[in-house]
Design a protein around this nucleic acid. Structure first.
Lengths: 193, 193
DNA sequence: GCCACAATGTACCAGTTAGTACATTGTGGC
DNA sequence: GCCACAATGTACTAACTGGTACATTGTGGC
């Protein structure tokens, strides 16, 4: 699929002929239906984000206990990233291009809301129960969780090589998974200095 | 410089002619001294890592208080990443290539040690003082800090666009900077569940 | 001054690649 | 069966790009 080729090779590295061959169509068809390489990439990017947000909406955390809920959210987000590495590669590529393509896809902005709403709700419950610190908002938490989950996939090669960590080994992965839960719970339940 | 061109355009996106022009030499010279595009990229990568590790060694945290020390380390690492975004872009590119180039530069592995040693020492002091949790090692902490600091630069365009966050705005940056300190301190000083 | 060789300039090539012109084939409506 | 037009196949090109052949110039040693 075109997604894989772009995720694998980057925008300039991806070859339209290559994509045509792998999708068992012809380059002629790609130009007929998409218009050009750039539009194809835009379609791939939009499609990837749409798919990921769809999957994200399935993340349902229905604990009454906000501490358990936030831990579960962190760990499910972790799992989610592990199973969508092509998407993460695509996002990395898009950031190399300073987001010049994604900025042209207006429809994606609204897709980010569900994640934020769920977090808002958990945080609010935790604050009301007096177990969460009060100087943290949903974006902060989402940033911390995303950063960790994305990094652990996106930068596994350089970090793994330099610090001799095998990110894909099951034991290691289980450790990494519980780690982000510990980090977020420990942080949110600590006192405001 | 060649570093900038690779950081800006990626490996396949970078043009040898372009690099030649910007360095005010000729393509001929690049082939004469480096041998080819790939060797030039390897030299750029090695050079970038060497520079960053050099700068990292200057991060000196000499508090007796391990809590203050770890916060300072997190915040200095944050500053460090803010000022070295070309390096971060290069690392992102290298990870897109699954680290195939960096793996050929043996000399880089040993450079990662100082960061780990410093962390080991702070953690040890904190555990001895009974203020840090005991189920965390230096790599864990380094991973959490790196993930956050790298992400906040590397993914600023997509995350910023989707969640409407302006990462470069001074107020925002100050908030992000203290945030990683809060996260790490809150986490490390929390109880092991 | 001259030699050996390092450093550099010039012009080029062979392979690749996004994109297209043009011809041909399918197909749904009547 | 035939028309209009959508869908597809074929063959091409113009521009680019990494890499090189060959000629020329600088330079340190004697």
């Amino acid at each position: 699929m075109a997604t894989e080729v772009f995720a694998e090779e980057g925008y300039s590295g991806a070859r339209v002929d290559d994509i045509a061959e792998r999708t068992r169509t012809t380059k002629r068809m790609i130009y007929y239906y998409f218009g050009g390489k750039e539009q194809l990439y835009l379609a791939v990017l939009e499609n990837a984000y749409r798919g990921i947000r769809e999957a994200e909406r399935a993340i349902d955390v229905d604990h009454t206990d906000p501490v358990a809920a936030i831990r579960q959210l962190a760990e499910l987000t972790f799992d989610h990233h592990v199973t969508h590495d092509a998407f993460i590669r695509l996002v990395a590529i898009e950031n190399i291009h300073r987001g010049e393509f994604i900025r042209r896809i207006d429809s994606l902005r609204t897709l980010a809301q569900p994640a934020k709403t769920l977090l808002d709700e958990i945080l609010e419950r935790g604050r009301a129960a007096g177990v969460f610190r009060t100087d943290v908002d949903a974006i902060d938490v989402h940033l911390v969780i995303s950063a960790y989950c994305v990094f652990q996939i996106a930068n596994q090669y350089t970090f793994g090589y330099l610090f001799d960590v095998e990110f894909t080994q099951p034991d290691r992965r289980a450790h990494l998974r519980s780690l982000i839960g510990d980090v977020v719970v420990g942080w949110l339940t600590s006192a405001v200095r």
